[in-house]
Design a protein around this nucleic acid. Structure first.
Lengths: 180, 180
DNA sequence: GGCTACATGTAAGCGGTTACATGATTTA
DNA sequence: TAAATCATGTAACCGCTTACATGTAGCC
C-alpha cells in the first residue's frame, strides 16, 4: 500500500511541519484514521525527500537545536492529488479480536458470554461519548470548501460506527438473556 | 498480540483438522474476523506443537501422501479457555485508507468528492447484500448453547456495521450536494 | 493425460511496534 | 534545577504477504 506516504503528504498539503509535529498529528487529529510512530515517520521523510516529493529547511530553535521544517513540493502535490482521485477498494475490516472471541464463545458459560459483551459495550459507549463531544464542538456544519468539512464527515462516520457497535452489543446481550 | 494462536486453538476446539483445512476456514467462515495464509499457519502449528498446546497424528491419503491431522491438547483447551474469558480492550479500527482519503479531500473538487463517496457506497452496499443473504440463510435464531449462535451474533454485527457505513456515506453525499 | 484441488513447507521483504540512544528547550 | 516536552534518529523484532518450491490425489 504505502499509505503512510500519503498521510504525510496530506499533512504537508495543509501546512509545513517537522517530523515531531507529524507525530503529534497522528496521535491527536489522525488517530481515528491512521497511526504512525516517530520511528516510522523519520525514515519515511528521508525517503520522500530523496524522491523529491518533500523538502526541508533547517530552522534553529533556541541557540543550537536544529529543526527540519518539511514542506511539500510541486511533485509531491501532484502525487498526492493522484492518490486522492484514485478510489481504493474498501476492505471491510478483516481483523477484530473481540469478534473472534465471540465467534468461539460457545466454550463459555451463558453468564461469561454476557459479561464479555457487557464489557465491550461499556467501552464502546464511553468512546462514543467522547466522539459525540468532539462532534458537538462544531457549532454548525462547516462550509463545504474548507478542510474542516472533511474532518466533520469523518467524525460523523466514527460516531455512526460506534452507535452501530453499541446497538449490536445491546441486541446481542438481549438475545443471550431472552432465550434461556 | 499473538491472536493467530487463539484462532487456531478455536478452530481445533471445534474439530480436528489439517493446516490445509485451516487455510480454507480462514478464507471462508473466519474471513469476517481474522485471516491467515498457509505460510503463517504452518510455522504457527509447529510452534504450538512444541508448546504442547496441539498435537498431530499422521494420516495417509491415497497411497503415500502424509497429512498431519491436528487436534487440541488439554493444555491447549485450558489456554484457549483463559483467552476466551479475558476481555480484550476494543481498539476501534485505527487504519482506514478511505477515511484518510476523505479527511484530506478538500484538495478535490466537489464533484470528485461526491464520486469518491459514491464509489465507496456502492461497494459497501453490495457487500451488505451478500451479508444479508448469509444472515437470511439462518431460518431462525440458533439455540443459545450451540456454536451456530455465536456465528449468528457475529454475522448480525457485520450486517449492522455495513448498514451504518452505507447510511454514513448516503448522509455524506447528501451534505455534499445540499450545501452548494 | 491434463487440470484442479489437496497438502506442506521456506524465504524475502514490508509495515509496524518497542526499545535503544542522544541531546536541547521550556516551564514550574 | 529538575521535570516535561521538544526534537531526531537507529536497531531489533513481530506479524503478515508474496513469492518460491515441491509433490500427491482425484476427476474428467
Amino acid at each position: 500500500m504505502g499509505t503512510l506516504k500519503y498521510a504525510i503528504l496530506g499533512l504537508l498539503s495543509r501546512r509545513s511541519m517537522t517530523g515531531y509535529d507529524m507525530t503529534r498529528e497522528f496521535e491527536t487529529t489522525l488517530f481515528e484514521l491512521w497511526s504512525a510512530k516517530h520511528s516510522q515517520i523519520y525514515p519515511e521523510l528521508r525517503a520522500l525527500t530523496e524522491q523529491g516529493l518533500v523538502e526541508y529547511k533547517i530552522e534553529i530553535a533556541g541557540k543550537v537545536l536544529e529543526k527540519k521544517l518539511y514542506s511539500i513540493t510541486e511533485a509531491g502535490k501532484n502525487e498526492f492529488a493522484a492518490w486522492e482521485k484514485s478510489r481504493c477498494t474498501a476492505k471491510p475490516q478483516l481483523k477484530d479480536e473481540f469478534r473472534l472471541q465471540l465467534f468461539f464463545a460457545d466454550v463459555l458459560s451463558a453468564e461469561h458470554r454476557i459479561e464479555l459483551l457487557s464489557t465491550q459495550r461499556k467501552e464502546h459507549e464511553s468512546y462514543l461519548k467522547h466522539l459525540r463531544g468532539k462532534l458537538e464542538a462544531f457549532e454548525e456544519i462547516p462550509p463545504k470548501g474548507e478542510a474542516e468539512f472533511s474532518d466533520y464527515l469523518v467524525l460523523m462516520g466514527a460516531v455512526m460506527r460506534e452507535e452501530s457497535a453499541c446497538r449490536w452489543l445491546e441486541d446481542s446481550i438481549r438475545l443471550c438473556r431472552e432465550r434461556q
